[in-house]
Design a protein around this nucleic acid. Structure first.
Lengths: 196, 196
DNA sequence: CTTTGCATGTAAACCGTTACATGATTTT
DNA sequence: AAAATCATGTAACGGTTTACATGCAAAG
C-alpha cells in the first residue's frame, strides 16, 4: 500500500466545473474509486447529471494534482487500483460552491419535447399515440426512481446524507406529474379529434 | 478556373441531428432566415432545447446542400440576406423523424439539482435558503413561460400550429409544480431544524 | 471455461458555446 | 449622432460521448 501526496505546481489555477464537484461529492458520500463513483452516479445523479468514466478518471487525476483529493495506491496483480479521499481543501471548495449565490440555469436538451413542439406535421392519431408513448416513458422513469434510485438513496442515509433521498423523491414526483400531464393531454387531443 | 466538386457528393449521407430538425421545424413554422429561427427558438424551445446562431447558420447551409431546404438570396447593400423554405424532401425527413418509434432520453445537466443532492455538506439554514432560491427561480421561469413564451405560441396558432402552445402550457405547469414542491420542502426542512 | 462484473485508463470524434468580425437599419 | 436591433457568418475553445485497449476476479 503506497501513499501518494498532492502534486502541486505553484501558480496554476485548476478551474473546477460542475462535474468536478460531482466527483468531489461522490467521494464525500463514500465512493472512493473511479469505478465506484461511476456506479453511484448511475443510481443517483444520472437522470439530471450524467457522467462517463472517460470524464471521471481524468477528473480524479486533476483534483488530486490540485490538492482537493489524496490518492492511495493499492497494487493488484499487474494492475494498480486507486482510492481517493477528500482533503480539507477539497471539502472547502465543495462547500464554497454549494454556498455560491448564483444558481446556474439548467441545461437540458430534450428531443422528445422538441418532437411534441413540432407534432403538427403529424396526423392527429399519430400525435395521440406519441403523447401516450411519452406518458409511458415518464412512468418507466418514475418506476426506475422508486425501485432503483430511492433504495440506493436510503442506504446512503445511514451515513447521514439525506440529499440523495430528497432528490430521488423529487425525481419520482416530477416524473409522476409528467406522466399524468401527458395522460390528460392525450385524452384531450383524442376528444378534440372525434369532434371533427 | 479550378474544378469545384459537388457540394454534396452522391455517396455521403448527411446525418440529421435533433438540432437539424429544430431548424427544419422552425422554417416550417415560418421563420425563414437564420436570425428569425434563432429569435423564434429563444421564445419557444429555448428552455428545453437551446440553440446558438453559430449552430444555426452552418446547419442551414448543410440542410440546403442536402436538398432539405432551398435558399433564396436577396442582395442588401454590400451584404447578402438569405431566406429558406422547406423542400418536399425536407418535409418528408421531418415527418419521418417525428414518426420514429424510439424516443431519445432527455439529456439534462442540472447543476442546481446536483447542489441539492450534495447539500448535506451545508448548515441546515443555508440549505433552507437554497431551496427557497430554487423555488423562486422556478417561479421566474413559470412567469417567463406565461408572459413571453405562451403569447408567442398563441401567435403561431393562427397559422395552424398548436404544438408551441401545448409545450408552453406544459412548461408553465411543470415549473409551477417544481416551485410548489420546493416551497413545501423548504417548510419541511425548517420544521425539522426547529425540532433539534 | 466462458460470461459477467470489477477496474483503469487513452484517443478520437462530436457537438456546442463564446468570442470575433462585419455591415445594414431603425430607434432614441 | 449614438445606441440598439437586425443580420450573417467564422475561429477557437471546451466539454462529453464513443470507441478502444487492457487486465483481474467471481460465478455459472
Amino acid at each position: 500500500m503506497g501513499f501518494v501526496g498532492p502534486i502541486q505546481a505553484a501558480g496554476d489555477p485548476l478551474k473546477l466545473r460542475p462535474s468536478s464537484y460531482l466527483v468531489l461529492g461522490m467521494v464525500r458520500l463514500g465512493a472512493r474509486s473511479g469505478y465506484a463513483i461511476k456506479k453511484l452516479a448511475d443510481t443517483s445523479t444520472r437522470v439530471f447529471f450524467p457522467i462517463s468514466l472517460a470524464q471521471v478518471y481524468p477528473e480524479l487525476a486533476r483534483l488530486q494534482s490540485g490538492g482537493f483529493l489524496v490518492r492511495t495506491d493499492d497494487a493488484h496483480g499487474r494492475r494498480n487500483r486507486s482510492f481517493y479521499a477528500l482533503t480539507e481543501s477539497g471539502e472547502r471548495a465543495l462547500v464554497a460552491w454549494l454556498q455560491s449565490e448564483r444558481i446556474a440555469p439548467a441545461r437540458s436538451r430534450d428531443e422528445s419535447l422538441l418532437r411534441l413542439f413540432l407534432a403538427d406535421a403529424l396526423p392527429q392519431e399519430d400525435e395521440v399515440a406519441y403523447v401516450r408513448r411519452m406518458r409511458d416513458r415518464a412512468r418507466d422513469s418514475q418506476e426506475w426512481m422508486r425501485n432503483a434510485v430511492f433504495p440506493a438513496a436510503r442506504a446512503l442515509e445511514a451515513g447521514g446524507a439525506h440529499g440523495p433521498r430528497t432528490v430521488a423523491r423529487f425525481g419520482a414526483d416530477l416524473f409522476e406529474f409528467v406522466a399524468d400531464w401527458m395522460d390528460r393531454y392525450a385524452d384531450e387531443l383524442e376528444r378534440r379529434g372525434k369532434d371533427t
